[in-house]
Amino acid sequence: MRQTLAETIISFLLGAAWALVLLGAAFLFWSFFPFGIVIALMAALVGSLFGLLFVVLLEVAALQFEKMRELRRQTKILESIKVSLESFDDAALRDH
Rank of each mutant, 00 (worst) to 15 (best):
T8Y: 03
A44H: 08
M68Y: 09
F33K: 15
E59G: 03
L45C: 10
V56Q: 12
A61H: 13
D89L: 10
L5K: 07
F65T: 00
I9F: 09
S80P: 01
A17C: 07
F65I: 01
F65M: 00
E79S: 02
L5I: 13
L71D: 11
W30C: 12
P34K: 05
T75D: 01
I10F: 04
R69M: 03
Q3W: 15
L78C: 06
M42K: 14
L78S: 07
A62C: 05
F12T: 10
S84D: 14
I81C: 05
E86K: 12
D95E: 13
S84E: 15
L53E: 03
K82A: 11
F54N: 13
L71Y: 09
W30T: 15
I39Q: 12
T8V: 11
D95P: 00
Q74N: 05
Q74L: 14
L13R: 00
L52P: 00
F88D: 14
A40W: 05
G51R: 01
L78E: 08
L45A: 14
W18Y: 15
A17N: 02
L71T: 07
G36H: 14
A6P: 04
L45D: 03
I81G: 03
I37K: 06
W30N: 15
L53P: 00
V60S: 10
F65V: 00
E7M: 09
G51Q: 09
L20M: 14
E66T: 12
A43H: 03
E86S: 05
F35R: 15
F27N: 15
E79G: 01
A40C: 07
F27Y: 15
R94E: 05
A25C: 02
Q3K: 13
E7R: 04
T4L: 02
L85R: 08
L78T: 04
L28M: 07
G51K: 06
Q74E: 12
R94L: 06
F27E: 12
H96W: 07
A25D: 03
R69E: 00
Q74S: 06
E59M: 09
L53R: 14
